[in-house]
Simulated scan of single mutants.
Amino acid sequence: MGENNFSRELRLLTPTHFEYVFNNAIPAVSPQLTLLARYNESNNPRLGITLSKKRVKYAHDRNRIKRLIRESFRLQRHSLPNIDIVVVGKSGLDKLSNKELFSLLEKLWKKLALRCEKSQ
């Protein structure tokens, strides 16, 4: 496993962590996902995911999407700055295949990293 794990230090765990990002976020937006980011004090990027039942109806779809988001983040985190990221799902997200979602996330990670560099 080594450096590519998804440990507790890489997650946003409390509502306070999420609120911190929502208050002054740098966005990266697509029709199915919104990524919000804000610089953190830790020495690595952290991830939080919000998928509501209203947007993604079935639990198995929400779980699949969350697994794919975590896996994509795990693979891309070394190219991201030290930011807290909240991924917000929108309607139509459950219609994407695994491959489509993975490629969308890859584009959004890059877009977010560029926007964070510009804002610093």
Rank of each mutant, 00 (worst) to 15 (best):
E3Y: 09
R74F: 10
R77G: 01
E100C: 01
H17T: 09
A37C: 09
K66V: 01
E41V: 07
L33R: 06
A28F: 12
L80P: 07
G92Q: 04
F102N: 09
M1E: 14
D84V: 07
R46L: 10
F73W: 09
G2E: 12
N40L: 01
Y39E: 13
K53M: 04
L80I: 09
H60D: 00
N98H: 10
E71F: 02
V21Y: 03
E3C: 11
L96C: 05
L75F: 10
S97K: 09
C116Q: 07
N63I: 04
A28N: 11
L104F: 02
T16A: 15
S91A: 13
K57R: 11
R67T: 10
R38V: 12
T34V: 15
R70D: 03
V86M: 03
F6S: 02
K110M: 07
Y39A: 15
G92F: 00
G92V: 03
K90W: 00
W109F: 10
R62G: 06
R38Q: 14
G2A: 14
S42L: 12
L51T: 05
H78D: 06
R64V: 05
L12P: 09
Y20A: 11
L13Y: 00
S103Y: 07
R62Q: 03
A113I: 02
L105E: 05
N5S: 15
F102Y: 08
V21M: 03
R62T: 04
I69D: 05
A113L: 04
K54T: 05
T16V: 12
Q120W: 00
E3T: 13
L75T: 11
A28G: 11
K66A: 08
D94N: 08
G48K: 02
F102T: 11
W109Q: 06
K99G: 01
Y20T: 13
P27N: 06
V88E: 05
V86C: 07
F102I: 03
L10F: 15
R115W: 04
F73I: 07
K54M: 01
